[in-house]
Design a protein around this nucleic acid. Sequence first.
DNA 1: TTAGGGTTAG
Length: 644
Amino acid sequence: MHLLRALRASSSALRRSHRLISAFAFAVDQQIRCHPPIDSAVPWNKLLRDHIAGSRPGLALALYRLMRALSPVLPNSYTLPLALRAAPSWRLASAVHAHAIHLGLHSHPDVAGQVLAAYARLGRAVEARRVFDALPVRRSTLSWNTLISACSIGCDHDAAWAAFARMVAAGACPDAVTWTTLLSAHARCGRHPEALRLFGDMHRSGCEGNAEAVAVALSACPYAGGPALARGRSIHAYGFVKGVVHGYLFVTNSLVCMYGKLGEMEAAEKVFWDAGTKKNAVTWNALITSYAAAGLCGEMLGVLARMEQFGGIVAPNVVSWSAVIGGFASSGDMEQALQLFRQMQQQWLLPNVVTLATVLSACTELLALRLGQEVHGHTIKAALDRHSLVQNGLVNMYGKCGRVTAARKVFDRMKSRDLISWNSMIGSYGTHGLCDEALAMFQDLTGALVEPDGVTFVAVLSACSHTGRVTEGRHLFNQMVREHKISPTMEHYTCMVDLLGRAGLLKDASELIETMPMRPDLCVWGALLNSCRIHGDAAVAEAAIAKVLQAETVTTGNHTLITNLYAAFGMWDDSKRVRVMTKEAGLKKNPGQSWIQVRNKVFAFTAGSMPSSEAEEILRVLDDLYAEMEDEKRAMYDAIANIV
DNA sequence: TTAGGGTTAG
């Protein structure tokens, strides 16, 4: 059914594009043969304008190329702004800018304005500023706003703020668009509290709150910390008073999302249904996002199905699918997330970088290497394998699934690496016991002038602890605190206790626990007790157990840990005593899960249980694995026999 | 005949 629909859609798209190309060819043919555009750029400009108005920038740009190649008429001050509007990339926009300079038209107000707009649209703040500085001194509010927008799209809130300050100093008056652009620049860069402060400043400056600014402020609420819901409600009320709530789609969408993300499902649903027919795909996606935040996976699927029922009006798009896939992944149901990814592909919907990054992260959680490799194939097919978000996902996936070399290969091919790329790669070396490589990469990171964070140090410290590098570990811990001014967290202390304990320095490990500025959690105690088990130190273990029982509330985790520890020391009576205590306290351990990958499908199961439908298949694979292992064992014995 | 702001998925 879906396939049929997809085939129909693609063939009609093909027919449309055929018609479009034929019309285009005919128009150009007419242009050149019947009305040779020898003495006028006007017909060319008209065609360009028509294509842009018809949302066909690709054809407009092709026409511009054709004009430059075939026509003796040069592009004029009308042609160049049109070509700039059609330019989809920085490379093409700068090429048209170069033509303008060549033709001596770059200072023409319309051309310069459009160059500025093109650079702003493409987030090229530095180039936009250069063009802006070359504008005549009396700059319009529009030009200032375009400059600030360039900084916003380029995700540089400091530059946006500097441009705003410069605008005020120059005596220009910021309008509603200026303020909205400025607060959006902060929201885009994750500076949500500042965005909300600016919303207040905007109001105090006498600029009345408009729908656009209200939408941005609402979207910042869930991330701004503090009394988020109270703030969201008061902005909602403010918008209501200003009359920009009902009938304003962007505000509706922001409201659904704000309430949903803050756990106010009823309020989110009310805004959604109150919107009546004034809803678009974003509104529906905002509802999916709300359900995802609440962990209501069934409801997410319900919305998706409902969108499909509408057929065409608000059909699920790549964002809808990515939101549902991400919702399942964050609820822990990776199998369903991957299943939905397949379903999405069956609908002939192309995944984008967010979808692929989400799916890669699901594969990583499941350690599903083959699926991860398959997704890698999709990234290449979609020509998105050079995108940093996808590349980070690949480094992480290969690294966690044990393919360190493949992870490194992706890492080395990256054009720009952020802290996540470095942390993934260092973490990958660390978890596979390649401490030298992890430490070398840490040196490379500092050499590349990237500032490490707490995650980086967890990665290097755990690398040290896995390989007993006590001196390096101690040095790194001090370096983190003194040079990088990072306060150690529970995770860092766990790594250090593990490092010292594994190396047999149980006294040092115990002392470190004593000096911790926070109450040690179960992981810290676990690291110490595990070291006691390795080194057979019952005395330290006994003291630690007493502290755990004294300090910790009774939980399943610490009792299981202590029970196992007593058992490891052969102290069966004590082990039994704690187990009885656990039972009496009514505690039940959540069973650990395992999984197996068969033909690109991941099956999770617990000890003693087996999904009946796939049991046969799983057992067959297990048999194969056992057989393979037996072969390996035989080969090894043969090899040993030959040596001996 | 021409430039600026907004919502949803990681």
